[in-house]
């Protein structure tokens, strides 16, 4: 499908916050309709979060009344404290904070390694495009669709043979491998859309492959890197099964403790603690989204959108 003249790209990545759509009509019923629609849509998206937050602030007797949407009569953060530091998961009663650092330990290197490798892949692919390379890339994309459980047995055997099973490098490797299709796709499309002149100029100056990559391409790739960081952080932070299987006992992620608190089969369910624990676990990706929402759209506009 090719790309638009490169000038439009530059213009776009600078002026994205100025919508290019039709000129707005100032005040009219249609305008009210636009806001009406957006507000209704926003309500639909908000309700679950609202329910989670107010439930986490209620006590159990109030929750049993079944007033799902009512504001708490007597707001309390007890459930939050319990979820963070006291809730029991097995013999230990240290809440979900136990796994927080493990999740950081897994997420940070996994995000970094998978983005470095994905960007190098994408860069290489953006100008090394033999049929063979494209076939490999096709296979990689196909891999994006393979449910990972399908390849779990050979992967366990492979990591075992490499001596990585149940270790931090093991889980980083797994996340990197599963993140590679989408990461490669993102960076390949982004580098393909960069202005040709940049590359040409560098070549004239005698720069080689790696030099161009690290000195010119990577600094240019900040918008798409932000997208990659967001997607990977969310995916890896929220992962439960891969961490459980490959990370080893020392590194079990936070989601394992969340699961222990939330999906208890026997005994009383403390919905307020469940909700607090859920929000606490989702906090990191949420903060990443809120902090970088603007860059996310910008980066996607610059990279993912182009074929």
């Amino acid at each position: 499908m090719g790309s638009k003249p490169q000038t439009s790209l530059l213009k776009r990545s600078m002026g994205l916050d100025n919508p290019w759509g039709p000129r707005p009509i100032k005040t009219s019923p249609a305008r009210m309709g636009v806001y009406g629609f957006l507000i209704v849509a926003a309500l639909f998206f908000c309700i679950p979060l609202y329910v989670m937050v107010i439930t986490s602030l209620k006590g159990m007797p109030e929750i049993r009344l079944g007033e799902l949407f009512a504001l708490p009569n007597d707001p309390t953060v007890a459930a939050w404290l319990k979820a963070w530091a006291e809730a029991c998961t097995g013999v230990q009663c240290n809440g979900i904070k136990e796994g927080f650092w493990n999740s950081i330990k897994i997420t940070v290197p996994s995000v970094m390694v998978s983005i470095v490798i994905g960007s190098i892949n994408g860069y290489a692919l953006s100008f090394w495009r033999s049929r063979g390379a494209n076939l490999i890339f096709g296979l990689l994309l196909f891999g994006a669709f393979v449910p990972f459980q399908v390849v779990i047995f050979p992967l366990i055997i492979f990591t075992r043979e490499m001596g990585m099973y149940g270790t931090l490098p093991g889980i980083v490797f797994i996340h990197t491998a599963f993140g590679m299709p989408i990461m490669t796709l993102l960076f390949r499309n982004y580098f393909s859309s960069l202005p040709e002149e940049l590359f040409k100029a560098a070549r004239v100056d005698g720069a080689g492959f790696w030099q161009i990559f690290f000195q010119i391409m990577m600094p240019m790739a900040i918008p798409i890197t932000i997208v990659a960081v967001i997607l990977q952080t969310t995916g890896i932070w929220n992962d439960f099964l891969l961490g459980l299987i490959f990370a080893g006992r020392e590194n079990l992620p936070m989601t394992v403790q969340l699961n222990n608190i939330v999906t208890t089969t026997f005994g009383v369910r403390e919905y307020n603690v469940n909700m607090a624990a859920t929000i606490l676990t989702a906090l990191v990706p949420l903060v990443v989204y809120l902090a970088s929402g603007k860059y996310f759209v910008r980066g996607i506009a610059a990279g993912a959108v182009k074929g």
Binding site: A41, F45, F240, P285, G293, F296
Partner: peptide, 12 residues
């Protein structure tokens, strides 16, 4: 609005 529409994607 954009943030509100997008935040569910951060939830597992």
């Amino acid at each position: 609005f954009r943030t509100l529409f997008l935040y569910p994607y951060a939830m597992s």
